[in-house]
Amino acid sequence: MGKADADGPGLPDLPPEWGRVVVPDDASALADEAEQVRRELRRQMSAQPRRWRSPGVPVLVLLIAVVTTVAGLLTVTWPRVGRSTGPITSSPEPTPAQLTGRMLPALDLVDAGQSPVPLRGLLPAVVLLVDSCPCPGLVAETALAAPAGVNVVTVAAGSPRAAPAGTEVRALADPTGGLRAFLQAPARPDTVTALLADRAGRVVLVVTEVDSVSDYRTELRRLAG
């Protein structure tokens, strides 16, 4: 049934230590040997992953996780150079006294026809913000108290308010609210805010809540100088 062994002419150049090699005529005769080889291969493959489940591997993974966590905590809590530890506070709004001496912003107001009127082109001037109160009596008294050459200007939010009869008050509007924003003085009901600026454009006086012309009469007279 078998063919020549390693010493015969049929299987040349086989290692002599293999001994006698017989090749059967029917391959099924090798079934037992093939099954044994497959069992050995399965045993070796199933045994290979178990080497990774040795006690040292979980310990190493756990150690790496702990080190990473501690490093992250140190990064968050470690004091940094220049880091501010105090509370964050916003800048306080300027007071009327702090506005004195500042230059007026280059704002454009609008007249009744929605034409732009540069604020700096009206200097020297007393500007009365009348968006919360028309207060025609106060406006008329201011016009009477203003010396020659000093403009009296009323400024409303949406559209100009009518000037009191018999006065030369310039009625304008500030639809963008730029002047209120500069003064940091929100509109209050039944209240007029007064702004006095000299011919150079410097703020002379700000009165956020005017009671009467007496609040700015002295400074108003000086604007003519």
Score class of each variant (00 low, 15 high):
Val210Pro: 00
Gly8Ser: 08
Ser132Gly: 09
Arg42Asp: 14
Thr193Gly: 03
Val59Phe: 12
Ser159Ile: 10
Arg83Lys: 12
Arg20Phe: 09
Pro24His: 04
Arg180Leu: 05
Thr75Gln: 14
Thr167Ser: 04
Val204Leu: 05
Val81Ile: 13
Pro124Leu: 02
Gly201His: 02
Ala140Gln: 11
Lys3Pro: 08
Ala200Phe: 13
Cys133Ile: 04
Pro92Ser: 09
Glu168Val: 08
Ala71Phe: 05
Ala224Val: 06
Asp25Tyr: 10
Thr85Arg: 13
Asp215Tyr: 04
Arg221Leu: 14
Arg39Cys: 06
Ser28Met: 12
Leu179Met: 05
Arg53Leu: 15
Val22Thr: 10
Glu33Lys: 08
Thr95Trp: 03
Gly149Thr: 01
Pro147Glu: 07
Ala106Glu: 15
Val213Pro: 01
Leu73Gln: 10
Leu30Thr: 08
Val207Glu: 05
Val70His: 09
Leu220Cys: 04
Val23Pro: 03
Leu195Tyr: 01
Arg39Gly: 10
Pro164Tyr: 04
Val66Met: 12
Arg199Asn: 04
Arg20Pro: 09
Asn151Arg: 12
Val110Glu: 05
Gly149Met: 02
Gly2Arg: 14
Pro12Val: 07
Gly201Thr: 02
Val117Tyr: 00
Glu33Met: 07
Val81Leu: 14
Val150Phe: 01
Arg42Ser: 11
Leu172Lys: 00
Val81Lys: 14
Leu205Thr: 03
Arg222Asn: 09
Ala145Pro: 03
Glu40Lys: 13
Gly137Phe: 11
Val81Ala: 15
Leu63Val: 15
Leu196Asp: 02
Pro160Val: 02
Thr191Ala: 06
Ala181Ser: 14
Pro92Ile: 05
Val110Gly: 00
Leu14Phe: 07
Pro175Leu: 08
Ala4Thr: 12
Asp215Cys: 06
Pro9Asn: 09
Thr95Asn: 04
Ala224Arg: 08
Val57Arg: 14
Ala29Asn: 11
Ala27Glu: 11
Ala27Tyr: 07
Pro105Phe: 06
Ser90Ile: 11
Pro15Met: 10
Asp32Trp: 12
Ala156Lys: 05
Gln36Asn: 12
Pro116Gln: 09
Asp215Arg: 06
Leu60Ile: 10
Val203Cys: 03
Phe182His: 02
Thr95Gln: 06
Pro160Ser: 06
Val192Phe: 00
Pro94His: 04
Pro9Thr: 09
Ile64Val: 15
Ala171Asn: 00
Ala65Lys: 10
Pro124Cys: 02
Gly158Leu: 14
Ala224Glu: 08
Trp52Phe: 14
Ser28Cys: 10
Leu128Pro: 00
Cys133Met: 10
Asp211Ser: 13
Pro118Cys: 03
Pro87Asp: 13
Pro58Ala: 07
Thr85Met: 12
Arg221Gln: 15
Ala65Ile: 11
Val37Tyr: 13
Glu40Ser: 14
Val23Lys: 08
Ala71His: 05
Asp25Val: 11
Val153Pro: 00
Ala140Arg: 12
Leu129Gly: 01
Ser84Lys: 13
Gly201Phe: 04
Leu107His: 02
Asp174Arg: 01
Ala171Arg: 00
Leu172Ile: 02
Gln48Pro: 05
Cys133Ala: 15
Arg51Ala: 12
Asp5Leu: 05
Val213Phe: 02
Glu141Pro: 02
Ala224Gly: 06
Gln44Ile: 11
Pro134Arg: 10
Ala181Tyr: 08
Leu41Glu: 12
Thr176Phe: 11
Pro55Gly: 07
Asp7Gln: 13
Gln36Glu: 14
Thr191Tyr: 03
Ala148Asp: 14
Pro175Lys: 07
Glu33Ile: 06
Leu128Lys: 00
Ala112Leu: 11
Ala156Val: 04
Thr77Met: 13
Gly149Phe: 01
